[in-house]
């Protein structure tokens, strides 16, 4: 059994890492809740964010943390035409055609990453990625704390956007009853396009943070997609605060799994937890609406 310090540090890392999971999962959750779309390319948007952070640093020297908004904007802007030209024409063709299309986008993006950036394992090298913070028995990397803070702020902003603004009103109305929303004057397709871009931006920003904290490869997206699904299912679809709770829960469970079973089992714990929750309660443990 590892020492108490290691256990405490590991649980704390899991908690903070869970915040980052929550941010990326929020993107998946919004798209699923508003558009009823399983975005199988979500993991690739996340990895795109990691690459964007990496190259921003390499080419311009801008610290990825300073450039987070830029990364979010870039990934969101890339997602917009995907919605406009690939998803909009599939309206009314059932839920499977858009999902398959996003599957296609996912494999295209993954292989473009390999073609453009090689299959090498990368990471964004920053001091704060390795420097650690010690509080009592707990020692964790600074990036976990920074990532958590950034994620909570971003989640809070998205929450405000959804709950306080006119766009958020349109978004929530389109999610519950797109027909009625259109009748009262909401341009539901535009809301969907914006939601899709917002979801991708969340993935992109979270991706940069993950790229600083961990190494990544062009094909890392699939694991994050599933981790994010686990968070969505734990937290309840379309429930923003639930997503945060789901992320933290998953982060801690992963740490526990790592302590008890060995580090390699971290991701497996998430997957198994996901399958169990999905089987017991497909609507999520904290089922609720926005």
């Amino acid at each position: 059994m590892p020492s108490l310090d290691v256990v405490a540090s590991s649980l704390a890392s899991g908690f903070f890492l869970g915040g980052i999971y929550a941010l990326t999962a929020l993107g998946l959750s919004l798209v699923l809740g508003v558009m009823r779309l399983v975005n199988l390319a979500h993991g690739e948007f996340l990895i795109l964010g990691a690459y964007a952070g990496l190259f921003l640093l390499k080419w311009t020297g801008v610290d990825p943390l300073a450039g987070l908004l830029l990364v979010g904007l870039a990934v969101g802007l890339l997602a917009y035409p995907i919605h406009r030209f690939l998803l909009t024409p599939l309206r009314g063709k059932g839920p499977e055609a858009p999902m398959m299309t996003m599957f296609g986008v996912s494999i295209i993006m993954q292989n473009l990453f390999i073609l453009l950036f090689s299959a090498d394992t990368r990471s964004i090298e920053r001091d704060y990625a390795t420097a650690s913070l010690s509080v009592g028995p707990v020692t964790i990397a600074w990036i976990y704390v920074i990532g958590f803070a950034v994620s909570v702020i971003a989640i809070g902003l998205v929450h405000l956007l959804v709950s306080r603004t006119a766009f958020g009103r349109d978004l929530r109305a389109s999610a519950v009853d797109p027909f009625a929303a259109a009748i009262v004057g909401v341009d539901v397709q535009r809301v969907h396009a914006a939601t899709f871009a917002l979801g991708a931006a969340c993935a992109g920003i979270g991706g940069t943070l993950i790229g600083i904290a961990f190494s990544f490869t062009p094909s890392s997206g699939a694991t994050y997609l599933l981790t994010n699904f686990a968070v969505v299912v734990l937290g309840g679809m379309g429930n923003i605060m639930g997503t945060l709770l789901g992320g933290v829960t998953l982060g801690i469970m992963q740490s526990l799994g790592g302590i008890v079973l060995g580090d390699g089992y971290r991701d497996l714990v998430g997957m198994v937890l996901f399958l169990i929750v999905l089987a017991i309660r497909p609507t999520g443990l904290l089922a609720g609406k926005s």
Binding site: R169, R172, A173, V176, D177, F179, A180, I183
Partner: peptide
């Protein structure tokens, strides 16, 4: 059927 947006 009213079609109120129930969560709003």
């Amino acid at each position: 059927g009213r079609r109120i947006f129930t969560p709003l």
